[in-house]
């Protein structure tokens, strides 16, 4: 299934631990679907998903680890923030029991959410909601971070700052990340590898400089 309707998807790829892979391509190519499959939110009929040597999905062995037991952080396109809770409570819900709250406070500060802690998501701008969603996904220190256009609603200034932040926190915690993005400067800045998708299959794959070579300079 993609936003273009039901469609056959057939692809295989690997991401190295701690690296950031970007999924790029037109709408309906299956980018979000891949994130959902990795999260266990969309089912597939065959194949396998292995993370750090742990099998999350294997059709042949009939293994399908439920979403709750996959160590993931997911930033949804429409954020999926809990509207009945403040920003602080949204983050607290995401914290595993007994976890040191220092990371949460660190995230609140770095994402500049301090003054918004007691505000409910409904009263936040798109960009503010996106920052909360990002903090909520990272606060669990997931093994796999899945970002569905997480910076699309931000202005350039905030986008730059959060790109830096994603980069820093990802390296610090060695978070393997799959990012869906349309934004070329962002991809060139963040991605270790790019997969260019079209109609459910891989059109091109490799390091960003190879896939998007700089335009020849005009003389």
């Amino acid at each position: 299934m993609t936003t273009a309707g039901r469609q056959q998807m057939d692809l295989a790829f690997e991401v190295e631990k701690g690296q950031l892979l970007t999924l790029y391509g037109p709408s309906g190519a299956g980018k979000t679907t891949i994130l959902r499959i990795l999260a266990g939110l969309t089912s597939i009929s065959s194949g396998h998903i292995i993370v750090d040597g742990d099998v999350w999905y294997d059709a042949r062995q009939k293994i399908n680890v439920p979403t709750q037991r996959r160590s993931i952080g997911f930033v949804f396109q429409d954020f999926g923030l809990f509207p009945h809770w403040s920003v602080y409570d949204n983050l607290r819900y995401a914290m595993p029991k007994g976890e040191d709250p220092r990371l949460m406070h660190e995230l609140i500060e770095l994402m500049e959410l301090g003054s918004l802690q007691d505000t409910r998501p409904t009263f936040l701008s798109g960009g503010q909601q996106q920052r909360v969603a990002l903090a909520r996904a990272i606060v669990r220190k997931p093994r796999l971070l899945l970002l569905d256009e997480p910076l699309s609603a931000l202005d350039d200034d905030m986008r730059h700052r959060l790109q830096d932040y994603i980069e820093r926190i990802r390296r610090h915690y060695e978070l393997t990340t799959v990012l869906v993005s349309h934004h070329l400067p962002e991809i060139l800045r963040l991605a270790d590898a790019v997969i260019w998708l079209d109609k459910g299959s891989i059109r091109q794959q490799g390091p960003p400089e190879k896939i998007f070579p700089p335009a020849p300079e005009k003389t």
């Binding site: 999260a39 979403t67 709750q68 993931i72 949804f76 429409d78 999926g80 819900y93 669990r140």
Partner: peptide, 15 residues
């Protein structure tokens, strides 16, 4: 309810 509410809670490890 938007499906993302339930799914977000699942991705946070909640039953």
């Amino acid at each position: 309810l938007p499906p993302a509410l339930r799914e977000a809670s699942y991705t946070l490890g909640k039953s």
